[in-house]
Design a protein around this nucleic acid. Structure first.
Lengths: 108, 108
DNA sequence: CCCATATTCAACCAATTGGTTGACCATTGC
DNA sequence: GCAATGGTCAACCAATTGGTTGAATATGGG
């Protein structure tokens, strides 16, 4: 299972991206995640499954409530992959990292 | 048409990602793009259409040959969107843009 | 215990996706 | 002119996707 496949596929749906944005604020219960969407709870539950399988969220059941938590690290591989394209075409990663450390040290 | 939808969907297929990687090297004719894949030319042609509609490549016909060119800027929105989830020091865009200007000015 | 709440499961459906094949159109070169 | 080359179109197919509904499961509270 290529993780880039599942990551990009998970991100290709606007409902799922909206859910991720919501979770950026705070962890949420499934029912609360579903509330703003004009679709059934079951549909949102499926979206959450897809996000979980992609590793983009984790879910923990406490009592009868299942809490959803953003797992932003799961975006890293996809982000790095994209980085080799884009306006990053000419990027020299080593140089960029050196630049970043220079920035950090000068910012004190 | 949400461009994030089409961008992420386009990137969710391994064949299309492979094509983009190939085009990173150089512009290519449709037939040459198709050559390494174990699928019909028509199938690859469809993939190229999807990439083009997502803006990730452009295609220009010269004679009977259609040339495919990577259009990396089309990844920018998606990249920025992902970046809002943080954690990725390495692709901090502000820093990256500063890096690019520094690169440009030093290259003369 | 019993009801309400929280969530998933299962069956189903329409639309989309990723592939095939064969016909078709455009261009090039002998 | 005509055959070969480059590429798309159209019809088709199986698998997947994103949604529905109704039933099922688990938990919590009076």
């Amino acid at each position: 299972m290529d993780t880039l496949d599942t990551t990009f596929a998970a991100l290709a749906d606007p409902t799922r991206r909206a859910i991720l944005s919501m979770l950026l604020e705070d962890d949420m219960a499934v029912t609360d995640v579903a509330e703003p969407f004009e679709m059934s709870l079951a549909a949102v539950s499926k979206h959450l499954m897809i996000l979980q399988k992609a590793g983009l969220i984790s879910q923990e059941k406490r009592g009868r409530v299942k809490w959803c938590k953003l797992e932003p690290d799961a975006m890293k591989d996809a982000s790095v992959w994209m980085q080799s394209f884009g306006q990053f075409e000419a990027i020299n990663l080593d140089a960029f990292e050196a630049f970043l450390s220079a920035e950090l040290s000068s910012e004190g």
